[in-house]
Design a binder for these strands. Structure first.
Lengths: 231, 231
DNA sequence: CTGTGTCAATACGGTTGCGTATTGTCATCC
DNA sequence: GGATGACAATACGCAACCGTATTGACACAG
């Protein structure tokens, strides 16, 4: 009967500061630890690897304690997806929305997206599990947010709706495909040693110089040669 | 959720067995029926859906008869992968190797690849299951074959090794990513009504006019607006 | 010291899918 | 018309997970 119902209900006038986590640095596990472990499992073996007992083994506990933090397995998956989605959103909002010039914004976004291999591989893993109806909504929201952002940026460049949509889809396909391949057959991708040249190629194909915006040639972002995926 | 039509309910209907005596048209199931069903299951729900009992239910039999055709579950998966790989190889060899001009060959290959949605989605499903070590070898072989073919074609265009590799990877990423997105979030891709314009975009980005080879402008393949994937 | 809240371990029952064993049903061959 | 070969059904045992129930360990508050 000891359900994890919030016992702070009645009248939280006083704030017993030390009735919770501060003194214990990392001794016990919390829901977020499970969610992060779930994300790691997804990146490694796909959504189906989000299983309670194996994860418990990884975390060094038994599943008995899992059901203290979550009601059921799907709640863990939902928490992991929420965590991922939020980090993605934070990312895109805080880092790129501020850049006024759409041309610069797109270029920087492209480089940043390909630079972050960790996140790219996680995206590939989640997109690879799209047959799972539990990930689909989150995946769709994230995809649509990014696509909308890309479409808007391309439209700000002076392109028509059709063309903006086409280029946004093109960009996103190249992104998703690159990391899908990197995840599936890293050997075939590893040979491309100069990833920045690869992305520059993508940017130049989609952002021709004759459109508008500044003419920053190449050495623009603080991004160097980002390549290798040595493990 | 179309339930398998099992006519052996309350009605004492005798099994409508084909009374065809001589050539045994299609009354009974063979290994290839199972392999094709497995491929269909992969395309729908990923490699993990290649499970004996569910497939038996779909095929209208019980797993008892499965083990007549295959020694174990993995043998079925192997057969399905072999079938896929062979069809892929046949495809690429018979259809494109004959085209002498690399420029034309690449262009036609691009259009053909994007035109064949069925195969593209199947490829996406298999690439999405790359965490499964049983599909990895097949997937790697197919990928490397295609990549090699692409690299060679680009090199024939007069490009250096690095550049050829880069463009081949670019092309293949765009292909894989497009179908990954189409599989994962068809709504976001469906809006691009003019797929041929999309592919033409890809081709023009990677096959600039000023290189070499013939100058066949545009009205090449009989590919029009191929988009939506209504199921 | 005792109570309570928080996390963890153990044990149990249920479901799904694998693989095996055994038996059944035809169609065909002799 | 029996034997055989090709397929199919049923029934088991086994393992992986899910979810529940119960109890244990331990920190801190009163």
């Amino acid at each position: 009967m000891s359900k994890p119902s919030k016992p702070k209900g009645a009248a939280p006038i006083i704030k017993p500061k030390k009735s919770k986590p501060a003194p214990t640095p990392k001794a016990q596990l919390g829901p977020e630890d499970w969610a992060r472990a779930a994300l790691a499992a997804i990146q490694r073996d796909g959504v189906q690897a989000v299983a309670v007992e194996p994860l418990a083994k990884i975390l060094g506990v038994t599943k008995g304690s899992f059901y203290w933090h979550f009601t059921h397995r799907d709640a863990l998956l939902a928490a992991a997806l929420r965590l991922w989605e939020q980090e993605q959103s934070d990312d895109i909002v805080t880092r790129f929305q501020a850049i006024a010039d759409p041309r610069r914004r797109l270029r920087i976004m492209m480089f940043a997206a390909f630079e972050d291999q960790e996140n790219g591989l996680l995206h590939a893993a989640l997109a690879s599990s799209s047959e799972d109806e539990r990930v689909q909504p989150t995946l769709r929201r994230v995809t649509e947010t990014r696509m909308r952002f890309g479409i808007e940026s391309f439209r700000s460049l002076g392109l028509g709706d059709e063309e903006a949509l086409r280029r946004a889809l093109f960009t996103y396909s190249a992104y998703a495909g690159y990391f899908l391949l990197l995840r599936a057959i890293p050997e075939s991708v590893r040979d491309v040693s100069d990833l920045s040249a690869y992305v520059r190629y993508l940017a130049n194909a989609l952002l021709p110089e004759d459109l508008k915006g500044d003419h920053s040639p190449k050495s623009k972002p603080g991004l160097k040669s980002v390549a290798q995926s040595r493990k």
